[in-house]
């Protein structure tokens, strides 16, 4: 039990304590009655009444140790999670994109695998149809899932990594965090991502990533 914690338990025990203290007072000889200190007349010590300014009647309070370590660039703090700086943004952004890419790609792979399930074999002599064993089917599906999932996830993760690195650099360079940075870093990340596939693919990817960054900015505004 916490010594100075809640006052509820103390109040419960208070009548019992005074009742117990009454017994020797009444059982004592009458000659001592005027000189004896009447124990039951003492107030039961209640920590919250003894020291009201200390706030001991409240529950435990938690110190927010990380408050001063939050991101200090102007315009931050409107994200979904509190950010401690560019490393937090990088890790959360990349991780979220990577995991969602992994999940989406896994779903695509599941679909592909279920579409191309191995057919049963037909015995050429008897003509009996033998279904493919379960393990073979499971293996087909798992192969497709592990082929598509990591591919989509890795691409999304690289995009997220580039986007967040460029975004944080722009934030630090311009000293503020706003939608313009987001759009610019989306465009740059898309351009770098497809920089070896020719100008047309680069233009497509740049446009797509800019739109995605704009959608993200709109989503954040909608939440706030």
């Amino acid at each position: 039990m916490w010594l100075f914690g809640g006052s509820t338990k103390k109040e419960e025990t208070a009548p019992a304590a005074s009742a117990a203290a009454d017994v020797p007072a009444t059982a004592a000889p009458a000659a001592y009655d005027d000189t004896q200190l009447n124990i039951s007349a003492f107030p039961v010590f209640d920590a919250s009444k003894l020291h009201p300014l200390a706030g001991l009647d409240k529950d435990l309070e938690y110190l927010d140790l990380d408050e001063e370590k939050l991101n200090t660039v102007e315009g931050t703090g409107n994200g979904i999670l509190p950010s401690r700086g560019w490393t937090d943004d990088l890790c959360y952004g990349t991780g979220t994109l990577y995991v969602s890419g992994l999940g989406l790609g896994g779903l695509v792979g599941l679909n592909e695998g279920l579409k191309h399930l191995p057919q049963g074999s037909v015995d050429p002599v008897t003509g009996a149809v033998k279904a493919a064993p379960f393990k073979l089917k499971l293996n087909t599906v798992l192969n497709q899932v592990t082929k598509h999932g990591p591919h989509v996830g890795n691409s999304a993760g690289v995009l997220g990594l580039l986007y967040n690195i460029i975004d944080s650099s722009l934030d630090a360079y311009r000293g503020r965090h706003d939608d313009l940075n987001s759009l610019a870093s989306g465009a740059l990340a898309g351009a770098i991502f497809k920089s070896t596939s020719g100008p047309k693919a680069m233009a497509y990817s740049t446009g797509l990533m800019t739109v995605a960054a704009a959608a993200w900015c709109g989503f954040k505004r909608m939440l706030n």
Partner: peptide, 8 residues
């Protein structure tokens, strides 16, 4: 999520 992203 943070660890996923950091390790990645």
């Amino acid at each position: 999520l943070n660890d996923f992203g950091g390790a990645y």
